[in-house]
């Protein structure tokens, strides 16, 4: 289909607008961050020469390394908890009648559309020392004095799971929804037990969903700085808190930029793993 001369101006205008926006507000800023990470710190002008790798060296500073590892630990626990709750959930959801499924999926999307800050704050009402949970347990006589739930590592993980669970469930639901009943029956007919069917049919087929879910949970679980701000106190920081501090308070841009590149690399790695799992599945399916 050869474009007529008539359509050229419109086409050109659209492409310039779209490319312009993305180059200026996506590509250029990201290159800037990469550049900032190899420059020197300058409290007055944010950045200065000479170029060096000090910021990356600072990432390995034991003080920060500890914060990063703790953040990674909380993110991994969050992801595992989401997977543990979400996997059977998505499975069960895909078995509900179609009519009801629409409503149930809608109920899962609602959190995506509502304010996560407000919902994190709502958790505070429940977890506080004189909050609802403690009051309920005291009234039931299950505990004698209120537990300290707020401002703990546990509170941060609970907050992250609460915010991110739908992002684990939705990709899982989509792979379970595609899982054909015939495959399970075939596996059964070929003599596989329930466990073998699960390990050799269901798990491999749902793996791309698992990895997509892990990607959608693990990365935000390191970045959502307002969750520890509200629920975690000063001891349970995320990588996101460090980046925010470096950019907005400490004014150490190179270090903040290097920490952010760390997150980007983690994302690239997870994307790659996801792609690999899908490709493997494609090859096996085609064979």
């Amino acid at each position: 289909m050869k474009p007529s001369p008539m359509q050229q101006p419109f086409r050109t205008a659209v492409l310039i607008l779209v490319w312009g926006w993305l180059l200026f507000l996506v590509l250029a800023p990201n290159l800037l961050v990469v550049g900032a990470s190899v420059m020197s710190r300058d409290p007055a002008r944010f950045l200065s020469l000479p170029l060096n790798l000090d910021a990356y060296r600072q990432l390995l500073d034991p003080l920060y390394l500890e914060v990063f590892l703790h953040s990674l630990y909380m993110a991994v626990m969050t992801t595992l908890a989401c997977l543990l709750v979400g996997y059977p959930f998505a499975w069960a959801l895909s078995r509900v009648g179609k009519q009801r499924q629409v409503l149930l999926v809608f109920l899962l999307i609602v959190p995506f559309w509502t304010n996560s800050l407000v919902r994190t704050y709502a958790l505070k009402l429940i977890l506080a020392t004189n909050g609802l949970l403690n009051n309920a347990l005291l009234a039931l006589g299950w505990i004698d004095e209120p537990m300290k739930l707020l401002y703990t590592e546990g509170a941060v993980i609970i907050g992250l799971v609460y915010l991110l669970l739908p992002f684990m469930i939705l990709p899982l639901y989509s792979v379970f929804d595609d899982l054909r009943e015939e495959l399970l029956m075939a596996s059964h007919d070929l003599g596989a037990g329930r466990w073998a069917t699960f390990a050799h049919v269901i798990v491999p087929l749902t793996l791309p969903g698992v990895l997509a879910g892990v990607m959608l949970v693990l990365l935000p679980a390191m970045g959502l700085f307002f969750v520890p701000d509200i629920l975690g106190g000063s001891r349970n920081l995320l990588v996101g808190n460090v980046i925010k501090n470096q950019f907005l308070d400490a004014r150490n841009w190179p270090f903040g930029a290097a920490a952010s590149i760390l997150l980007t690399l983690a994302m690239a790695f997870l994307l790659f793993a996801h792609k690999l799992s899908k490709r493997r599945l494609g090859e096996e399916g085609g064979a």
């Binding site: 980046i243 930029a257 994302m267």
Partner: peptide
């Protein structure tokens, strides 16, 4: 590349987008 950039915006942690825009 265009598709890829849009995908990256959607997938990358919000905070990465945030600081890159601040720098710009």
């Amino acid at each position: 590349v265009l598709n890829g950039m849009l995908f990256v915006v959607m997938m990358s942690p919000e905070i990465v987008l945030a600081i890159s825009l601040l720098a710009l």
